[in-house]
Amino acid sequence: MIKILTDSSSDLSKEILKKYDITVIPLKVNMEGNDYLEGIDLTPPEFFVKLFSSENLPKTSQPSPTAFAETFSKFREDDELLCLTISSGLSGTYQSACMGKELSGANVTVFDTLAGSLAHGFQIIRAAELAQNGYSIGEIVTELEREREKMNILILLDTLENIVKGGRLSKFQGSLAKILNIKVILEGVNGKVEILEKVQGKKRFQKKTLEVIRHRKEDFSNTFFGITHTGNVEEAEALKAELIQQFQPKDVIVRYMGATMGTYAGKGGMIISF
Rank of each mutant, 00 (worst) to 15 (best):
D219C: 05
Y36P: 13
S64E: 03
Y135L: 15
T223I: 06
C98V: 15
R214I: 01
N34M: 11
S61P: 09
N34P: 00
E187W: 01
K250I: 02
T93Y: 06
A127Q: 06
T260C: 08
L160D: 00
M257C: 09
A177M: 10
I244P: 02
A177N: 01
T6Q: 09
L169K: 06
T159N: 11
E46G: 05
K203V: 07
A131S: 15
T113K: 05
V212S: 00
S104A: 04
V233T: 12
L82G: 00
E32N: 14
V199L: 11
T228P: 02
T223K: 02
V29S: 03
F48M: 03
K19P: 03
A128E: 06
K3N: 01
F75W: 04
F47T: 01
I2W: 09
N232F: 13
S136P: 04
K240C: 02
G33F: 13
L156I: 13
P63Y: 07
G100D: 09
I155S: 01
I179H: 06
G262V: 13
T159G: 14
Y20C: 01
L186H: 02
L156P: 07
G262T: 14
G116A: 15
I185S: 01
E237Q: 13
L37K: 14
A97P: 14
T6L: 10
F75M: 04
I16N: 01
